[in-house]
């Protein structure tokens, strides 16, 4: 376990220098004008950054309204009978509902839960596992589809949310067993 952690730690430190060395080195070996090619690629960065603005505004606005209005609290109340069935603590529900919506929001909920119930309590343990179990689906959908101008996302949102639900429920169950 310790060794595994050490390897991963080093990998994540070395990854970026290694990739830069490998890619630029290989480019030079292939006799590419590396500086010119880099600049050529980097030019697109600005375009992409600007392109996603409207999509991100639309998404973040809806999520911010949903949270501020108290609708999220109401949803929590409505879903709670279901989550009680798997023995999920009601305190964890805001975490589960926030996770796919907002990265910074769920980070806040997680920190708050660990502060009030203790980092190493079942609630604290489960909340941090839930945080690591999935990504912020709505953010990824908005940014990724926005960058290429796809408006009709078909079944991407429901499929992504179903995957989130599976991850979050697994996190709850595993932490109950593990604890």
């Amino acid at each position: 376990m310790e060794l595994f952690r050490l390897i991963i730690d080093w990998l994540s430190i070395l990854a970026i220098p290694m990739i830069i060395f490998l890619f630029i080195g290989y480019g030079a070996y292939k006799k590419l004008p590396v500086y010119e090619k880099f600049v050529e690629g980097a030019k697109e960065g600005f375009e992409v950054g600007v392109k996603i603005i409207p999509y991100l505004v639309a998404m973040l606005m809806a999520i911010a309204m949903f949270r501020a209005s108290g609708a999220l609290d109401m949803l929590t109340y409505l879903v709670s009978p279901l989550t009680n069935l798997i023995g999920m603590k009601p305190e964890l529900l805001p975490m589960a509902l926030m996770r796919p919506l907002s990265g910074s929001g769920s980070l806040g909920v997680m920190t708050d839960l660990m502060k009030t119930h203790g980092v190493d309590s079942l609630i604290g343990f489960t909340a941090s596992t839930m945080f690591g179990s999935t990504e912020t689906t709505f953010y990824v959908l908005a940014v990724y589809f926005g960058a290429v101008g796809v408006r009709n996302t078909r079944y991407a949102a429901p499929a992504g949310l179903l995957a989130d639900a599976a991850g979050l429920i697994t996190a709850v169950l595993i932490c109950q067993l593990w604890y």
Partner: peptide, 19 residues
């Protein structure tokens, strides 16, 4: 935008080199 530019630049090199 900044990180985008950096990685897209690196990726451009990798792509054209066939990596």
């Amino acid at each position: 935008i900044g990180v985008m530019a950096l990685w897209l630049g690196i990726m451009k090199i990798a792509e054209e080199a066939g990596f």
